[in-house]
Design a protein around this nucleic acid. Structure first.
Lengths: 344, 344
DNA sequence: GCAACAAATGTAAACGTTTACATTTGAGCC
DNA sequence: GGCTCAAATGTAAACGTTTACATTTGTTGC
């Protein structure tokens, strides 16, 4: 015997419209009537059925979050900040991994086109080719892209400023006087990886340093990749004086490789990472890295999306924001680190 | 000009019922009609509005997941496994942190009582007192509890077998011949912490070992807590020969403390943890710990919940499953570890 | 006391499906 | 051809709200 709005109306001696108005707070209701209704509502412990509300209002107060995968503290932090912000705004969060790139559009369509959510925050696994971009264009409804944007004209995106982060890291390494600076790159086709690499290149050239092609090695964002990258670099006749690893995980692998080969960080080789993962502060010496403002990324994206939904900003507009990173100085670059390491 | 089921029906020259039957696959439809409808559906790129479906079917194909907080790989893994399983079953996942214990019931109510989800997987931050339990009892609809259950008669829960995990760890330490085995406990009122402590106690007593009260110190599941716990233990006139840290984070803190005080693990003191977090395999020596079957926890909970929703199993029944843990042997307990450490 | 107007309330039509039930169609059989 | 029965289809009533519009009520100024 589930109680519905009609039951409330009947018992309070008013119409359903009045009940609705009372509960939603929109539209005028006399104080006396309000109290009458509220009493019945409390008595019967009534709460409006949101399935019906969603249909009637053509809105769900739910936003979809589609991520490449659901692993890593990175995504957890992202989800956390989105959840927090959504909670404050009285919205709900529906989450999904894209279950491989193939299904990214399908997931999106199921979320958006069926009206299950009011908008979507989408982070694609890799760069989006033009075919994918075209399909995305078909989809109606507000979408905010994170960290990689499709090749379409009007879209909204928030990105971590990989380029700026990379240049500031490389600049810092250069400021130590290092000239032979190597890079362990991220995986091919990953836009984060590409931008960080570009930042490295440009910064080197800007400072009049030439880039020895043998000092640029491929990586894959994993510990193993970093390990092998390091080994490769130190198999060279002239190994580098510093290494910029495109992310912290690879830097971690480099630590291990250095340890095994008896190479000292930072005395023999300096090391810089990117991401500022939890682990990086536990290393000895603490890893110098680039802080990626994930929390900011999540909450800004959500806030913007809500504005799109409410119509405060144009959903079909073109808006791109790069969130700037910060340098986290540890001891791995050669700086004095006053930090007491937590991992022996 | 959003296209609805009536438009499809009109163009295909059938009734909406037939379109619905065609699309849902339930109810008889002649092959010829089916094709006719499908053509129109494809032409107009139609997909049924799920807000309307939800209302009409009194179901949302969505399950709610309420977690104490959205940080840590632990919860990420949990979400990951739930998402994966839900995806396979064609369901959606709505996620929320409980935004502190106070709002746990409110979140639950908003999810369930308003019909936003078909069922909920709930992990409470701490032990649920009887007041909270009573309020939970009021809520209609399928709920699966994770890792702590309310004080009510009929409910469903899946738990990591903390007790068994703790005893097997302590038993292992005892098998090394250690007798003065200390424990760094988890926070008061946390059911995981309590059960692990109980396992420690019972196992010690079962093996005829007496428990020196000074060897049991409070902790809080953080690195810092572990650090101070270790320091406290080694400030004793007779420090322990082995330490069981109630989770890996605290074990991590213990490593750091050991390092600083020049105490060798495992030669001077053996160490055991609990959780098997990513980090534990990076330590040197690798941490001996208890593997918590999180993936299994998530997927089993979800599968059971779906069965409750579909009515295959009784939602008001009483069912409790403990998922057994496994020992992950590293070098910190004194065993030979053939593992090559990744963190120097 | 009444006009004018605003405030409060009510009426009923959406919202876009699903599905119980009623009806039609068609096949198989005599 | 007429009967029976199952298969296919259609009709229309839910599902439980919100909200545009219509109506009633109450207030103010004259």
């Amino acid at each position: 015997m589930k109680v519905d709005i009609r039951e409330i109306a009947r018992r309070a001696g008013v119409s359903t419209a009045t009940v609705s108005r009372t509960l939603s707070g929109k539209g005028p209701v006399r104080e006396e009537t309000r109290r009458k209704v509220m009493n019945v509502v409390q008595d019967l412990n009534y709460r409006p059925n949101s399935r019906a509300r969603n249909l009637s209002r053509r809105q769900t107060d739910t936003i979809g979050v589609i991520l490449p995968e659901l692993v890593d503290e990175f995504f957890m932090d992202l989800i956390h900040s989105i959840d927090e912000e959504a909670y404050l705004a009285g919205h709900y969060v529906m989450i999904s991994s894209s279950h491989n790139q193939r299904n990214i559009v399908q997931t999106l369509v199921e979320f958006m086109d069926s009206g299950r959510v009011d908008g979507v925050i989408l982070m694609a696994p890799k760069m989006m080719d033009s075919r994918l971009s075209q399909r995305l264009k078909q989809i109606r409804g507000p979408i905010v892209f994170l960290n990689s944007r499709p090749e379409i004209e009007n879209c909204i995106s928030f990105t971590i400023d990989n380029y700026q982060g990379a240049t500031s890291m490389v600049r810092h390494l250069i400021s130590h006087g290092y000239e032979r600076i190597a890079m362990i790159k991220g995986p091919e086709g990953n836009s984060d990886a590409d931008e960080r690499y570009q930042g490295y290149l440009d910064c080197m050239l800007d400072h009049g340093l030439r880039i020895d092609p043998s000092l640029v090695v491929e990586g894959d964002f994993t510990i193993k990749g970093g390990y092998h990258g390091f080994m490769r670099l130190f198999g060279l006749p002239k190994p580098p004086r510093a290494i910029f690893a495109a992310n912290d995980m690879m830097a971690l692998g480099a630590y291990e490789a250095a340890k095994q080969t008896g190479i000292n960080i930072p005395d023999d080789v300096a090391l810089g990472g990117f991401d500022d993962i939890f682990l990086s502060k536990l290393l000895n010496p603490r890893l110098t890295t680039v802080h990626a403002p994930i929390v900011e990324l999540g909450s800004k994206a959500l806030r913007y999306l809500l504005q799109m939904i409410s119509g405060e900003v144009e959903s079909n507009g073109d808006y791109h924001e790069k969130l700037s990173t910060g340098l986290v100085i540890g001891g791995s670059c050669g700086c004095e680190s006053n930090h007491s390491p937590l991992i022996p």
